[in-house]
Design a protein around this nucleic acid. Structure first.
Lengths: 111, 111
DNA sequence: TAATATACCTTGACAGGCGAAGTATAATTT
DNA sequence: AAATTATACTTCGCCTGTCAAGGTATATTA
């Protein structure tokens, strides 16, 4: 288990929604961006990524459509919905709360 | 699913190890402390708490022993080991890394 | 032509969290 | 005195997200 797997768990949706907030994108690109942003220290595993897409499309956070590439492998693009934007904002707020809560719970008390 | 469940996942061990770092304690007390520290906004579910004890004892992070209460319900106390202290320090370092990684991954880019 | 990069998908297993139920004693309330 | 609440621990089985492993297909590079 890599450093991040259990700590990042629960942020997958937020990470993806952030990438889709202003622009449509597709799985491969989203993952490359994540790797680049973290200097290779983190990546979503493909199975995780695509199962997140399924989950979020079922939840109504995103929509998908096939791109019309003339060349190269086909791409399934994802578009965030209004519900998805709301969800992103909610998840961000929850993260802020959780972050300070965790900080206060895991720090050592003065002995 | 409450706000924290998936976000806190992966921090259970760290939270418990922090509580045991300077003083032995037992399940019920640890959970009360958590509730008090978070003003009731978070608690470890009993099943989660006790399964974490088992996991960490198997991993050698903690040891357990029965208290010798003369009155009231019996208590199983837990004591952190040196391995447990090392683990706590490692988990704290991982949290710091993860925290900034998550922050950078979920923020919106300037459009 | 072989290897690598791009791009997507599915299956099955695993691990942690948790709902639900149970056991037992002590303190408090009615 | 009886009922309720608080203290304290335990086990069983389900749910969900992650991921290893495998697969498909096209385009580019060595």
């Amino acid at each position: 288990m890599s450093i991040a797997s259990d700590l990042i768990r629960g942020h997958t949706d937020t990470i993806i929604l952030a990438q889709l907030y202003y622009n449509d994108s597709y799985g491969y690109e989203i993952n490359k961006t994540i790797q680049q942003k973290t200097a290779g220290r983190y990546e979503l595993k493909e199975a995780t990524l695509y199962s997140a897409f399924r989950r979020m499309e079922n939840a109504g956070y995103i929509l998908s459509y096939w791109g019309d590439e003339k060349t190269g492998a086909r791409r399934r693009y994802y578009k965030i919905t209004e519900t998805g934007r709301d969800t992103y904002m909610r998840l961000m707020a929850e993260w802020k709360t959780a972050k300070s809560m965790i900080d206060s719970l895991i720090e050592l008390e003065d002995e």
